[in-house]
Design a protein around this nucleic acid. Structure first.
Lengths: 194, 194
DNA sequence: CCTACCGATCGGTAGG
DNA sequence: CCTACCGATCGGTAGG
């Protein structure tokens, strides 16, 4: 119940947790694992987090906020849908690139949230995806986009972006802009020559 | 050490395991969980599987075989790359559709394989993905496809297909062919009107 | 396929 | 932030 040793203690735990949650998953990571990586004993974690799930909570909801700040900026613009879609793709890729570990936890480990937190998280995710659907719908309305299945198109975009930073699969030395623009080109214009 | 009660015992365990591995993940699923779902006691599972990991092994390598059989059929054809790519996408979607649970385990839980099994599995996955890369390379060589980053394009295709059957996200009542063709259209021709 | 059981490890608490 | 510790649960074995 005494005060933690340093004020950076919480940040060290957060960092260790997101690394291990990403590598082995939430369920396979014990508080002792996190503590060891953070250079402390397991019970010390409870000076900073009330439970293991609260650590996950902070990672997941923290990332949700980052994703929202990025997409909100994109949605402000009144560009054509094609430009807006490219901007959204680049923005999403940027966030994942800058927060690779947390993003992977965000995408895969949120199922271990429980009760109202789980509900709230699902709602946030859905709200985020809605921005992509809105852009695609705008494109269709303006006659720029084909009359595609909006949900499927959204899913394709987000799944491909999220997949790229999974594991160590980004083997090429591509920078974020290259990745984002390549995927944007692919989604907008396809792989076939005109 | 006595014989199992029925010859379907192993199949019941397999089914329970793949359901639970899919819903909560390998690490969060206990042998007692699987046993309960299979209508038996935990130690009885060991009449059929030497360990928890062996169950996972059977699911992952079994699915690898199914994926390979499907893609091998596609690779036999000498169609144009665009048709072959569409066929590969439809084939991949079919496999996931017909084996949704095992596919999800295949995509996400293989990291809990260990030692040589883990190595062998990674090799299999890489070999499978190579088929898609070959098709795309063929398309570029034949002048049908743009000079895209092959690895990124492959990743986009597979990630989007794999993502669709995650969770209960397939909310629309689309059949497999619709999903496969929609994604094939998107990848081949893009979302923008010509 | 079951009962009885093992050592190890889990998330978390008491108390300083 | 640490030591000492708790009840619960884990994967798996012995033996039938």
């Amino acid at each position: 119940m005494a005060a933690p040793k340093t004020s950076e203690g919480k940040e060290v735990i957060r960092k260790s947790a997101r690394q291990m949650f990403r590598e082995r998953g939430y369920a396979a990571t014990s508080m002792r694992d996190i503590a060891r990586a953070a250079g402390m004993e397991a019970p010390s974690i409870y000076s900073h987090f009330a439970s293991k799930e609260k650590i996950l909570h902070e990672i997941c909801f923290g990332m949700a906020q980052v994703f929202f700040e990025a997409i909100d900026e994109v949605m402000k613009s009144d560009s054509a849908a094609s430009e807006k879609l490219r901007a959204a793709i680049l923005s999403h890729a940027q966030v994942i690139h800058q927060h690779t570990e947390e993003s992977n936890v965000f995408f895969h480990e949120w199922i271990f949230l429980s009760g109202p937190d789980l509900m709230a998280f699902k709602k946030l995710r859905s709200n985020y995806e809605k921005n992509f659907r809105l852009i695609i719908e705008q494109g269709i309305r303006e006659g720029l986009f084909k009359n595609v299945n909006v949900r499927l198109a959204t899913f394709t975009i987000l799944s491909s972006l999220n997949g790229i930073y999974e594991l160590n699969s980004n083997q090429d030395k591509l920078n974020v802009a290259e990745i984002g623009n390549t995927i944007a080109d692919l989604i907008l214009n396809g792989i076939q020559k005109p």
